[in-house]
Nucleic acid binder design. Sequence first.
DNA 1: ATCAGTTTGTTAAATAATTACCAATAAAAA
DNA 2: TTTTTATTGGTAATTATTTAACAAACTGAT
Lengths: 217, 217
Amino acid sequence: MEKMRSNISMAVIRRLPKYYRYLNDLVEKGVTRISSMEFGRILGFTASQIRQDLNCFGGFGQQGYGYNVEELRDEIANILGLNKTNNAIIVGAGNLGQAIANYSGFRGSGFILKGMFDINPRLVGISIRDIKIMDIDEMSEFIKKADINVGIICTPKEGAQEVADRLTGERIKAIWNFAPTDLDVPEDVIVENVHLSESLMVLAYLMNQRENAEDNK
Amino acid sequence: MEKMRSNISMAVIRRLPKYYRYLNDLVEKGVTRISSMEFGRILGFTASQIRQDLNCFGGFGQQGYGYNVEELRDEIANILGLNKTNNAIIVGAGNLGQAIANYSGFRGSGFILKGMFDINPRLVGISIRDIKIMDIDEMSEFIKKADINVGIICTPKEGAQEVADRLTGERIKAIWNFAPTDLDVPEDVIVENVHLSESLMVLAYLMNQRENAEDNK
DNA sequence: ATCAGTTTGTTAAATAATTACCAATAAAAA
DNA sequence: TTTTTATTGGTAATTATTTAACAAACTGAT
């Protein structure tokens, strides 16, 4: 049974998926047990950090043995809520929306794509992976009918806030936002941003810096 | 002239693009000056943090006045290296690769897409935004010829490491990695990961947690 | 059983990041 | 010009995160 600590830091939470990914790889390789030290070596973390992180949720290991790989993997899946399903829709069915619709990572995260929406009449009616693109005016009704609780925003930044307003108006619980803007939503709505341009700018910064450092040598 | 501090923390660096984005918005709105307090209110940061962050790179403000919006925007663009151009190729021309190719965020970050590569013969020959998809065997030669220094990996995780090896073999400087795996590269190569599945799992965690918290009320 | 060797969970120490504070100084008002 | 007000840049205090240390406890071998 998990410890009930609700004040886990985001730093810890953002490491959990990486733990999960590597544990999955280990399971596939047939590794049954692992120590925090060896796991840390693989991940590039300190053993201490791994033990500290895992202990936020419970004592999954055993002295003199380490962690059972499969058991730990399942515990983390449980902590991440990957066993629960969430019905999702994509709003904005352009290139990015379509790529996300085809994204295989949905499998295994518990998210199920139920519909796609766009304002562009050329896109409405097209199907991506058996998901029909619908007109955005049908969205509210669809959310109710299909029990949607996650909205994925793949619109340009101009339309994003309005889409967010419509989604939250329908009591959606979470938004996965790919639009390059910060959304203003009620405090009980969760927003996870994927800001590609920011990621790219960080890359630009690091390249630029590296270059400057070399010039100064 | 910038201060020369090379030990800027990643926490600061990852905030720079957000500063840049909001400053651009302010320029567009015609705002000419702003105090750290007002800027913080808009961004959701403390005034202290903004002043502290900016001071890593230089004293861009003025007592009793604040910061000149346009000037600060340009300074940050310069710090981020957005004025320099970098030639990039996309490896993996599936849905995600094509979406990235169409991604308008390249404009304004200084990255120029010069080519796309795939192993799938059905894709080779197709053009996306005037960029021809080539066979991956032509990649090495193309990198030399077209002076490419950035590789964007949009392959499944299975092929990603091999692509990274080929890219670094050609002395590429940086990789923008969308494959759900951590790449092993020489230490002078910069890797910026966009791990969508990890982002999605964090979303799952937060939703799951919110639900648990509500149940315990 | 007993014992040597591992490895955890947990507490303490060290490091990093954020926030508060304030003297110095420029802008704006008087 | 002088005074008041605003606001920075930098330093100090606080808070958060990471790493180190170690007693407790399990494994596996003898």
